[in-house]
Amino acid sequence: MTPPTTAAVQPVHPQDHLLRTDRIPHIWCSGCGIGIVFGALMAAVMKSGTPLDDVAVVSGIGCTGRMAGYIKLDSFHTTHGRAIPFATGLKLARPQGKVVVASGDGDLLAIGGNHFIHAARRNMDLTIICVNNFNYGMTGGQLAPSTPFGAKTTTTPLGSPDEPFNFCALAAACGATYVARWTALHVRRLTNAITEAMNKKGFSFVEVIAPCPTAFGRRNKIRRALDLLRFYYDRSVVKNQLDPGEATIDFDHSLAVGKFLDIERPTFLDHYEMVNRGEVEAWPATGVDASAAGKRKAG
């Protein structure tokens, strides 16, 4: 056996200035897609042209939640599911900053589901990156709200009996202004999508389908990370501007990826300032006819 090789001087990676290099190598398994998304996020932060002091990364619990600990920017690793409330507070306290929430499907849309839909409803100016690996990877591969129907996990050894969420449709239905989905192998398009989402005013949601060979692939007979990465990519069909309701994750026919939604809508801060300046008309806008009140009898 050849003895292990170690370079005397470690070469400096171009992204090292955004990495907490003392924490690298990170905890993600060999072939995990989160590292690719993390690299795309760092590239997008540089590409968006935002001053680095104005970017904050917030994440919740789970494998993806570790992102906040590895990026050398203002970052916070919140409790389970509470990344969006924390990010909301950050955004309101410092509205000129860009707040990116990077978390997994279990954190954002299972325990944090209510925070997600209400942040989308109020159109908080946040960028949400949801790394969807179809299970709870860190705790051992349990059933998640994204697990495809019939897929095996630790808690559903015979196959999942549940229909999964369509996160893009959920975000769009709740009022998001930017919705996109890519797989981890569409790195360049993913980087562009995250850049667009960061520069977009309003609730922007980017879903990334990432391989989890250790917890998800192993139980579903796609053990190699390379096969899982290619499996998602081969099944994907780019359908930009597709109605998010039809953008289902269907592995048998077509896994729709692309930019589904890019609209303008006043954000929470716009509305809040209007209310505080007294620029909002009394509700209801049509007024109430006082003379008519009481004339109509119930029933």
């Binding site: 072939g31 995990c32 897609g33 590292g35 690719i36 993390f38 690299g39 790195v187 980087t191």
Partner: peptide, 10 residues
């Protein structure tokens, strides 16, 4: 460089 999940190649 962009596909490496470990920031180990450039």
């Amino acid at each position: 460089e962009v596909i490496c999940p470990e920031f180990a190649i450039f």
